[in-house]
């Protein structure tokens, strides 16, 4: 029971990092990405590779994961600079589909469909962390650091610039703001921090494969942000906790078909997204309607 609860804490913390970082570009910069799982995956694969081939210290695995994701995110920033929300959704959807193909085909790095096995546990200053209860400290601390970073960014002049762009791109540009630069930086930051979640995920499960980094994962993270409340601080956390608890809640009710937990979970959050948009577009936490 204890291990079960700490396992949930870890998964919630890892997905909350993803939701918080996606909320950063969705809620503040107005970049609606369906490719967040790509950076999650790249972070996981990179840190797994570093842990197996170099050293499993998180001082190595996490920075390596962040750098890889930051580099790839430039590829996503490129179309984001050219087009508005509608069209960017298409570009990110394409990138996600392409990434899944690469993750399943690049066998020397990702292990193909089979995935990467026997990833060493996270090594924090020489101590190996593999018990869920101990790992929970690591994952929650990581979440707090990521949140603090994003929060500081949002309340800095950079964050004000982002919100200005979100409200009116041309107005921000006419005030001399370098819109493409600000957008690029926000995408890079979001991707690099999402890779932290990937690094934690790889060392926590010690096994990863492409299943965790598909379009479904990107959609799940997007649902967390939206259901919790886009552009709010607490929203992504609430959304992540709610959606990660959903499978356990479903298994609580015996009358529901237990073999269909995954499908039921998706139906519930799909329905949740639609109903919220009709009746409460700001999400659970958000009070006023957000554009």
């Amino acid at each position: 029971m204890e291990a079960y609860i700490f396992n949930l804490v870890n998964l919630i913390a890892i997905y909350a990092i993803l939701a918080v970082t996606l909320n950063f570009i969705m809620g503040y910069a107005g970049i609606y990405s369906l490719a967040h799982a790509v950076f999650f995956g790249l972070g996981a694969y990179t840190s797994a590779w570093v842990a197996q081939n170099v050293h499993p210290s998180i001082l190595l695995t996490i920075p390596a994961a962040m750098m890889a994701a930051a580099a790839l995110s430039l590829l996503l920033a490129l179309p984001a600079l050219r087009v508005r929300g509608e069209y960017f959704v298409a570009a990110s959807l394409g990138l996600q589909v392409l990434a899944v193909t690469i993750f399943s085909e690049w066998k020397s790095f990702t292990g193909g469909i089979g995935g990467v096995l026997a990833i060493p546990p996270a090594n924090v200053f020489g101590i190996e962390v593999f018990k869920p209860a101990h790992f929970a400290i690591l994952s929650v601390v990581a979440l707090v650091i990521v949140m603090a970073l994003i929060n500081a960014l949002v309340h800095s002049s950079f964050g004000r610039n982002l919100r200005a762009i979100h409200d009116s791109e041309s107005a921000a540009a006419s005030f001399g703001k370098n819109v493409p630069m600000i957008k690029t930086i926000s995408v890079v930051i979001s991707a690099a921090l999402a890779a932290v979640a990937g690094a934690l995920y790889a060392s926590y499960l010690s096994f990863i494969n492409v299943e965790s980094f598909t379009l479904d994962a990107s959609v799940l993270v997007m649902a967390m942000v939206i259901i919790g409340g886009t552009g709010t601080v607490a929203g992504p956390i609430v959304g992540a906790a709610l959606l990660m608890l959903l499978p356990s809640l479903i298994s609580w009710f015996d009358f529901l078909p237990q073999t269909e937990i995954g499908a039921l979970q998706q139906i519930i959050y799909g329905l949740g997204m639609t109903l919220l948009m009709i009746f409460r577009p700001g999400g659970i936490v958000g009070r006023r309607a957000k554009a």
């Binding site: 107005g30 609606y32 929300g85 509608e86 959704v89 959609v219 997007m222 649902a223 939206i226 886009t230 998706q266 139906i267 959050y269 799909g270 329905l271 949740g272 997204m273 639609t274 109903l275 919220l276 948009m277 009709i278 577009p281 309607a289 554009a291």
Partner: peptide, 14 residues
């Protein structure tokens, strides 16, 4: 755009 997109997306998942 975003509100409509999310609602539509949710229906697609269902």
């Amino acid at each position: 755009f975003f509100t409509v997109f999310v609602a539509s997306f949710g229906v697609g998942i269902v």
